[in-house]
Amino acid sequence: MLDHPQIRAWRPPLTGIAEVFHARITDHVYPMHTHDSWTLLIVDDGMVRYELDRHEHGALDQLVTLLPPHVPHNGRSVTPDGFQKRVIYLDSTQLEDSLIGLAVDSPVLEDPVLRQRIHLLHRSLEQAGDELEAESRLAMVSERLRDHLQGRVESRSPIRNSTIAFRLRDLLDARFVEGISLQDASETLHVHPAHLVRVFSREFGMGPHQYLTSRRVDLARKLLLDGMSPRLVAGATGFYDQSHFNRHFKRTLGTSPGRFARSAPADPLPSPRSPLSPS
């Protein structure tokens, strides 16, 4: 008796990704088929054997597989226990069709840094409200894939990069409550999204999404201590919903917004009188 695959598929609200697909496959054998998007595959358990352009390849749990659009391929498990995979289907805004031939020649990438970035991208895609994080991670993944295929390294100017980083910080500071997409920031500053993420992270030791979240949490602390309810604070500080707010607040401070608010003394000490204040 054949086991039904355990699958989860969705289309995130993020330009550049056509579909996200997570699956545990035991008995199913994929016939030859094609996609009109790039297939970015990581295997978490087991091994996949597939044919691409009449050549056989294997997808292992420590490798990254990139299958180009319009080129037929199939897939099957190597072991009886099947395999578990996570796939992101990228559209042509992330990788140009001119790179298809290079991907056919080298669909398997042995790059632990890239694999970790893809893993973190999947995690951010599963959390509503973390669109800037997902957008930032997608930009870095796409750039590293492009560099692999083209074998090039972008030249960098330390002085200009520092200036760009501070300009992006100013932009985030001005709009951290309403938020700003990485694409909008890129168009405003006339800098490629991946380059923005890289230079900002190098300058400040954190990604743009982490910086924006930290600014929101910092404002939330002030509002909570002023007596605003956590439910209202979530909306006032730009978080997607209460759950999104709670998750990031606790990740930053190690406690929930409610407990943080209740930690204030019931009768706080009065502010010291100014020497010029009337007695």
Rank of each mutant, 00 (worst) to 15 (best):
D241Q: 07
F200T: 01
M228A: 09
L90S: 01
R167G: 08
N246Q: 13
L41G: 05
L95T: 01
F83S: 03
H192Y: 04
Q116H: 15
Y89S: 09
Y89G: 07
S186E: 02
R175N: 15
V104I: 14
L276Q: 07
V104C: 11
P208D: 00
S157Y: 06
D61N: 13
G46I: 03
G207D: 11
L102D: 04
G151T: 07
L99M: 14
A23V: 08
R251Q: 13
S263H: 03
L219G: 11
A220P: 03
K250W: 05
G207R: 05
H119G: 11
P69N: 09
R216F: 06
L138I: 07
P275A: 02
A23H: 06
A236Y: 02
R221V: 12
V177Y: 03
D3C: 01
L225C: 08
A59H: 04
H55F: 14
S256L: 08
L269M: 15
R259E: 13
L189T: 00
I180G: 11
P193S: 03
I25F: 08
D81G: 05
E178G: 09
E143C: 09
F204S: 03
N161I: 13
R76I: 03
T34V: 13
L189P: 02
T15W: 11
P107C: 10
L224M: 02
E19N: 06
T163N: 11
A185F: 00
S136C: 12
H248W: 15
P31D: 00
L182I: 00
H148C: 15
R221W: 05
H122Y: 11
T93P: 10
D170S: 14
N74V: 06
V29C: 02
L67F: 05
V29E: 01
T255G: 04
R54N: 11
V104P: 07
A261V: 01
A103D: 10
A134P: 03
L145W: 05
S181A: 15
A261Q: 00
Q116K: 15
I17R: 04
D111I: 05
H70Q: 10
E187C: 02
A59T: 03
L66W: 02
P69S: 10
H195R: 01
R221A: 10
M1Q: 04
L90K: 02
H22S: 11
L125G: 02
L109A: 05
E135M: 09
T93R: 14
L269N: 14
S263F: 01
D53T: 02
R24T: 11
M140K: 01
A128M: 09
L171M: 06
Y211N: 07
S124D: 06
A236K: 01
E19R: 08
Q84Y: 06
H209Y: 08
T34Q: 13
H190T: 11
L212M: 12
Y211R: 09
P80Q: 04
